[in-house]
């Protein structure tokens, strides 16, 4: 038998109490200037997607922005990094802030130029990896069927080829290696891992009803991908981009250390290679190898810290965890703790 409530008058179409209750406060007041309201709404939307400024994020940003500015500005104020007229193997002094190398190069000038070189390689390689992983991952995930099989096959092949040996093989075959070539080689060996993650994620997004709804509305495939799916992948893409930069800079340092780095340009890796061939450790010239090594470590740490903050947007559980531990600890201190060693879900 039909339920009795179906007898309610059909003409009553107005808001039900639940809907009225959900209407936000302030709507009843006079309509404000729409232009300003729109700008505010846009700002609110963007801010919602930004990570909260925590100590973690702030220190990461300071490190990365500081190193980037150093790489951009410092080379204009130092002497030429390839000027060899200085006395060789001088420890740090007022004239040479970070001393000189065996060939009489100023280490500070080299570091400034090397920062620029390493960052360029990192950003170019990261961008290449990002574009390729989006192309293979998102398309495979969205299109499905045969396109998915083919794109996944290529991804999986790239995934199982060990990256560094391949890079070494390519690097040894090419005689004059510019920094751009090294960046491209690093980029095309780094995209497979992120592509697998993106494929899985976009397969899941593709099955969401709002994607089906936009298809029913008549959106074309490229617009569905660019407007409906990609924005929801943004945090993930940012994290992957930053990680690809770290990977490329470390990869370049490794290659250069093996003598397979870019010829004719200065990076942190080539500085380390020079220090090694110049027996910097044997002669105790710490000022030669410590600065580039430290820069790599600091940039890696800075980018990772930013990445952690982005991770907290993707996975809100991570955001709750520290707060939760703090609360448990506080409760324990006040003598109303649940357990001595609180575990976090």
């Amino acid at each position: 038998m039909p339920e009795p409530h179906t007898a309610v008058d059909e003409a009553v179409v107005d808001r039900t109490p639940a809907d009225t209750f959900a209407a936000p406060i302030g709507i009843t007041s006079a309509v404000p200037d729409t232009g300003r309201a729109e700008a505010e709404a846009a700002k609110r939307g963007i801010r919602r997607r930004m990570p909260k400024l925590t100590l973690k994020l702030a220190s990461g940003l300071v490190l990365v922005v500081g190193i980037t500015l150093f790489g951009i500005i410092a080379p204009f104020f130092t002497q030429s990094p390839t000027f060899s007229g200085n006395p060789s193997l001088q420890p740090p002094s007022a004239d040479h802030w970070l001393g000189t190398t065996k060939l009489g190069y100023d280490v500070f000038a080299q570091l400034a130029q090397g920062t620029r070189g390493s960052l360029l390689i990192g950003i170019v390689a990261g961008s290449i990896a990002l574009v390729l992983s989006v192309l293979f991952g998102v398309l495979a995930g969205y299109l499905g069927n045969w396109s998915d099989e083919i794109l996944s096959l290529v991804t999986n092949i790239m995934l199982v080829i060990p990256g560094l040996p391949l890079v070494m093989v390519i690097a040894t075959y090419v005689p004059g290696r510019s920094w751009l070539l090294v960046a491209i080689v690093l980029g095309i060996t780094a995209w497979a891992g992120p592509a697998v993650v993106l494929r899985a994620q976009s397969r899941s997004l593709r099955a969401r009803e709002y994607v089906a709804a936009s298809r029913v509305a008549g959106e074309r495939a490229h617009r569905v991908i660019l407007v409906e799916i990609l924005p929801n992948l943004l945090p993930l893409l940012t994290a992957q981009f930053l990680f690809a930069i770290i990977f490329a800079i470390l990869g370049e340092a490794g290659l250069s250390y093996l003598g397979l780095g870019p010829t004719g340009s200065i990076t942190w890796g080539t500085m380390l290679n020079d220090a090694q061939t110049g027996q910097a450790i044997g002669t105790g010239a710490w000022w030669w190898f410590v600065p580039p090594g430290l820069m790599i470590a600091l940039l890696g740490a800075g980018l990772s810290l930013i990445n952690f903050s982005i991770d907290e947007i993707i996975n809100p559980k991570l955001r709750i965890a520290p707060e939760y531990t703090r609360r448990v600890r506080k409760a324990a201190r006040e003598g109303r703790g649940v357990a001595v060693e609180g575990s976090i879900a």
């Binding site: 939307g45 009803e209 709002y210 709804a213 936009s214 407007v227 409906e228 924005p231 929801n232």
Partner: peptide, 8 residues
């Protein structure tokens, strides 16, 4: 699920 959280 049928409205994209990213868009107005």
């Amino acid at each position: 699920a049928s409205l994209n959280p990213f868009h107005s």
